[in-house]
């Protein structure tokens, strides 16, 4: 360990510290904005799936997840008693899909909203799209029960063109989400 190495390490450390400091400032400025956007997005998605404007989280016990093929992130109950919203994630055709499923007290789906996904653009990604094709796909889930299935399996849901995997995983997840609410009772 000679002087030169120490000097080099010091320079590198100094530059890292400067960069980290600048990033800290930028992060401080951007942080509230990002959090605010996340909240807005979540609330917007919640109000799409359930007719309510305020929600409170439901405490879950392990028995609510037993044997479920999706991972439940949280369950929110609408304060006006119109039902529950299940936030869950599961694997689609390309990666993890995070979705919000609204379920009313009769254990029927009231709507779905896809929060994040990495499906193929132009095919599976249509499931989350704001264009007509996406809206039509998602509206098929309104009013379905836990027995929901794709049309080719004898159910009522028409799959998206070229995206059977995405469609069927969304359908399965809706069915599982309804079962989760059922187990809460």
């Amino acid at each position: 360990m000679n002087n030169k190495t120490v000097k080099l390490a010091f320079v590198l450390f100094l530059i890292c510290a400067i960069v980290a400091g600048i990033l800290g400032v930028v992060n401080e400025l951007a942080k509230t904005r990002i959090a605010q956007y996340q909240d807005e997005k979540e609330l917007k998605a919640l109000s799409i799936v359930l007719p309510a404007d305020s929600f409170s989280p439901v405490k879950l016990s392990p028995k609510n997840f037993m044997g479920k093929k999706i991972s439940v992130i949280s369950v929110m109950q609408a304060d006006n008693g119109s039902g529950y919203a299940v936030k869950c994630s599961f694997s689609g055709a390309q990666g993890i899909i995070t979705m919000l499923v609204g379920v009313n007290n009769d254990l029927k789906c009231t709507g779905i909203s896809i929060l994040s996904h990495s499906e193929t653009s132009g095919l599976g990604a249509n499931a989350a799209s704001t264009a007509e094709v996406g809206v039509n796909f998602r509206s098929q889930f309104e009013g379905v029960g836990a027995d929901v299935a794709l049309a080719k399996k004898g159910g009522t849901i028409d799959a998206l063109t070229g995206a059977t995997i995405t469609s069927s995983s969304v359908t399965n997840a809706v069915s599982e989400a309804i079962r989760v609410v059922e187990s809460i009772g």
């Binding site: 990033l23 930028v26 997005k41």
Partner: peptide
């Protein structure tokens, strides 16, 4: 920096 700004302003 660009990543943080995009997350905040063009999410």
């Amino acid at each position: 920096i660009v990543d943080l700004l995009l997350q905040a302003f063009i999410p």
